[in-house]
Structure formats: structure tokens, C-alpha cells
Design a protein around this nucleic acid. Structure first.
Lengths: 156, 156
DNA sequence: GGTGAGGGTTTGAAAATCCAACGCACAGGG
DNA sequence: CCCTGTGCGTTGGATTTTCAAACCCTCACC
């Protein structure tokens, strides 16, 4: 055997949406841009790559194809419920980039219902307290693994 | 000209951490795994790729090299403040994978200070209200762009 | 009948990935 | 001293992906 990587939902999620352009496609769909040509232009993805990404995202249940014309057969792409649940990922990535890369002029600003510009904060749904590094503890449940690595750090 | 993609902090952030393995490296570092060999094994990244990713993340100010042995010269990799601010991204990705891919047996569980298993929630730091799709409005500030796309949808 | 839009597929060159092997610097043991 | 092992990479070559541009097909419209 040749040492499987750590079992992890982050890795599993990235296997679906971690390829180049996948999250940008989702961004466009979230913005209401649902057609092939527009998504291609707005993301910069080559058309053949976009074809592959859309196919994968549809198979993963993140997007769905909805017909908007029968003849010729034409579809648009919409986020499913699962797809919409990825929005916090987009928002969080955007907030990081706004802070660290585009501090002086943000390309897009999100306005929250309350009227303020959104700065997103991750909290515990249960107690409402901040969910930051210092308030979290990892419990590795995958058999054979610990926080540091595999139990048997070499052999099989 | 050949049509630049939409200016966007999500894209800018992904240009740094969107390559394969980059976020998994950050995951390991966040878990306290800081040395080359272990990161390689736990993520599954080929060693040459890992070299490239670490270099890029260090240059981006997300990780830093800290010497832990002078002779032979050896370094470990730690998250900078900017790097730690990416943790919400990891947590959010993990939550999605836990819900949609590993619902019946999560490889890793996060426990919040309050004693409960964390389910993360994104809120507005200002008012504390949920920051979901329906409570957000996009304002595109980049010149020449609207929510739907470029102002002049073809020409330059 | 010609033109144009929408949504892809094809083609071939360029870049990134993967994996195994190698290199180097040192530590520890015999 | 010699041999082995560990840590951290680098190198070489085969394999995949990406990319950009061109092509194709179906219709709508004039």
C-alpha cells in the first residue's frame, strides 16, 4: 500500500469544487448568470473546461440544468439547495481577499439587510459565540488517524 | 483585447489558495502538522508539488518558515495571522462536506467552547443577523462591470 | 440565402501533475 | 570509520490538464 491521505470533509468537498474555475462558476450562478456563454466570459474559463466543470457540478448535485428553450434544446444552470449552501464559502473567500488583497478598493461589496456593508463572522449556531481557532477543538474520528497523522506512522 | 474576467476577490483569493493541495496544506498546518514529510503524507501531495505550494503560500504571507534546527538547517511552516484568517474557509468547506458527503460518519468533528459540536453559521458582524443569500445584496463597484457582466457585452 | 447567436466539440501545442529515484547533510550505532 | 536512517528537498521523464482558436450544428431573423 501507498499511504492514503487523511480522511477529511475538506478534501472531499474540494474534490468537487476545488478544481480551477469551479467556484467561480458557482459565483456567477449565484449572481444570476446562468448561461454558458456568459459564465465563460465572466470567469475566463475556456469553453471545453467549462463544459467539464458544469458536467461535474451537475453530477455532484450542486447545479442543475433547467431547460429554457425546447427548440433548439437549451439549458441554463441553477444552484440546487446544496449549491446554495456553498455560498458561505464564497462569502468567506471574498472577505479574505477584500481584506488582504483588495483592501483599498473592493471589486464587489455585499450589503446586509441591516443596511451595513457585510463583514462576515463565523459563529457557533448553538451558542452564538465566535467560532475561531482558539474556541475550537478537533476530534479525529477516522480510524487509524490522530490530529498529527496516522497511528502507525510508517508501516501498513 | 481578449475580455478580462470579472474582477473579484474570490478569484484573487483562489489564485493564491485555489491550486490543488493548497488548502489541505493549510489544514495540516492548522492541525499542528508543520513539517514537510508529514504534510506530504497527510495530504497526499507529491513532494515536488508540495515544495511549490509551500513556496507560494510563504510568498503570499499565508505561511511562514520558522527554523527549528540550525544544523542541518531545517524549517517548519506556520500560519501567519493572514493564514489563520483563512480558517473560516476551511471550517465552512468541512461543514458542507460533513453535511452532503459524509453525513453518517464525519472524519473530524469540531467541538466549540460551549461544549457542543460546532455547526458554523455565518452572520453579519454588525447586526449579528444571519448572512444568507436572501439577506445580501451585491454591489459591483468594478468599473465596466455589472452584476450580470461587462457593461459593453462584446466590444472593448 | 445569408448572418448571427447559443452551446458546445475538436485539435494540437503548452503547462502542470505525478512518481520514483537521487542528493545532501547530519545523527547514531557498531 | 562505515553503515544505516531521517528530513527535506531536487531531478527526469511519462502522463494529464489546460488552453486558445477553430470548427460544427441548430435554429431565428431578415
Amino acid at each position: 500500500m501507498k499511504a492514503a491521505p487523511r480522511p477529511c470533509s475538506i478534501a472531499d468537498t474540494l474534490a468537487l469544487v476545488g478544481e480551477k474555475y469551479a467556484l467561480l462558476v458557482l459565483r456567477e450562478v449565484s449572481l444570476g448568470v446562468r448561461r454558458f456563454d456568459r459564465i465563460a466570459r465572466n470567469t475566463g474559463a475556456p469553453r471545453d473546461i467549462l463544459t467539464a466543470r458544469l458536467k461535474r457540478l451537475v453530477e455532484a448535485g450542486i447545479l442543475e440544468k433547467v431547460p429554457y428553450s425546447a427548440r433548439p434544446p437549451r439549458f441554463e444552470y441553477r444552484a440546487t439547495a446544496a449549491g446554495e449552501e456553498l455560498q458561505p464559502v464564497l462569502v468567506t473567500l471574498m472577505a479574505w481577499g477584500d481584506r488582504h488583497l483588495n483592501a483599498d478598493d473592493r471589486p464587489v461589496v455585499l450589503e446586509h439587510d441591516c443596511g451595513e456593508v457585510l463583514s462576515p463572522r463565523l459563529v457557533c449556531a448553538h451558542c452564538g459565540g465566535e467560532a475561531g481557532r482558539d474556541s475550537l477543538r478537533h476530534h479525529v474520528r477516522a480510524p487509524g488517524w490522530t490530529t498529527a497523522g496516522p497511528v502507525e506512522p510508517g508501516a501498513s
